[in-house]
Computed example of a mutant assay.
Amino acid sequence: MEEVIKESMESYNSYIDKLGPGTDIIINQIYNEEYQVAKQNLIDLLEGLMWLVEVNDKLNQLNYVNSLDTYKMNRLSEEIIEAMGKNDYNLCADILQYELKDFTSSLIKYSNN
């Protein structure tokens, strides 16, 4: 069980490290009008954000507490989904650039100690 917890924490931490660069890629795809590729990457990003919330919740249940603001994460995800539903990719880019990147840059990793 401890090994699974450790691997979950390492995966969580690794995903946090990839969020900023991955978000930049999507923003650039939108600015370059590569909407189909950006759309798939936005879907992947949203799935990843949901995964972070799920892992965080499960680890919290096991008393491995982290300060992830799941309400804010879910709210940002909903805003992105709403913008995607309207095919407003410029709004998606703005949400990524000015809200999600700021939020995810302050995420705290789990300690493996």
Score class of each variant (00 low, 15 high):
Met1Glu: 04
Glu2Trp: 02
Met9Glu: 01
Glu10Asp: 02
Ser11Thr: 09
Ser11Gln: 01
Ser11Asp: 04
Ser11Leu: 03
Tyr12Gln: 04
Tyr12Ile: 00
Ser14Gly: 08
Tyr15Met: 03
Ile16Tyr: 05
Ile16Glu: 01
Ile16His: 01
Ile16Ala: 03
Asp17Thr: 06
Lys18Ala: 06
Leu19Lys: 06
Leu19Ser: 09
Gly20Trp: 01
Gly20Cys: 00
Pro21Gln: 03
Pro21Ile: 03
Thr23Ala: 05
Ile25Tyr: 06
Ile26Trp: 08
Ile26Val: 14
Ile26Thr: 10
Gln29Ala: 07
Gln29Arg: 11
Gln29Met: 14
Gln29Cys: 03
Ile30Val: 15
Ile30Tyr: 14
Asn32Ile: 02
Asn32Ala: 10
Asn32Trp: 02
Glu33Ser: 14
Glu34Lys: 15
Glu34Arg: 13
Gln36Gly: 05
Gln36Val: 12
Gln36Thr: 08
Val37Arg: 14
Val37Lys: 15
Asn41Gln: 15
Asn41Phe: 05
Ile43Glu: 15
Asp44Phe: 12
Leu45Thr: 06
Leu46Cys: 05
Glu47Leu: 14
Glu47His: 14
Glu47Trp: 13
Gly48Pro: 13
Gly48Ile: 13
Leu49Ser: 07
Leu49Arg: 08
Leu49Val: 09
Met50Val: 13
Met50Phe: 11
Met50Thr: 12
Trp51Lys: 14
Trp51Tyr: 14
Leu52Arg: 10
Leu52Asn: 07
Glu54His: 14
Glu54Cys: 07
Glu54Ala: 15
Asn56Arg: 13
Asn56Val: 07
Asn56Lys: 14
Asp57Val: 06
Leu59Cys: 13
Asn60Ile: 08
Gln61Asn: 15
Leu62Ser: 12
Val65Leu: 12
Val65Ser: 10
Val65Trp: 07
Asn66Met: 10
Asn66Leu: 10
Asn66Phe: 07
Asn66Arg: 11
Thr70Phe: 01
Thr70Gln: 12
Tyr71Ser: 09
Lys72Gln: 14
Lys72Trp: 00
Met73Ala: 13
Met73Gly: 00
Arg75Glu: 12
Leu76Trp: 03
Leu76Arg: 03
Ser77Arg: 12
Glu78Ala: 11
Glu78Val: 06
Glu78Asp: 10
Glu79Trp: 03
Ile80Lys: 02
Ile81Asn: 07
Ile81Ser: 11
Ile81Gln: 09
Glu82Gln: 09
Ala83Lys: 02
Ala83Asp: 05
Ala83Met: 05
Met84Glu: 08
Met84Tyr: 03
Gly85Val: 07
Asn87His: 10
Asp88His: 00
Asp88Ser: 09
Tyr89Glu: 03
Leu91Glu: 13
Leu91Ser: 07
Cys92Asp: 03
Ala93Ser: 13
Asp94Trp: 03
Asp94Gln: 12
Leu96Asp: 02
Gln97Arg: 13
Gln97Val: 01
Lys101Arg: 15
Lys101Pro: 04
Thr104Phe: 05
Ser106Pro: 00
Leu107His: 01
Leu107Arg: 04
Ile108Cys: 06
Ile108Ser: 12
Lys109Leu: 00
Lys109Tyr: 02
Tyr110Lys: 08
Ser111Gly: 05
Asn112Ser: 05
Asn112Met: 05
Asn112Glu: 01
Asn113Ala: 07
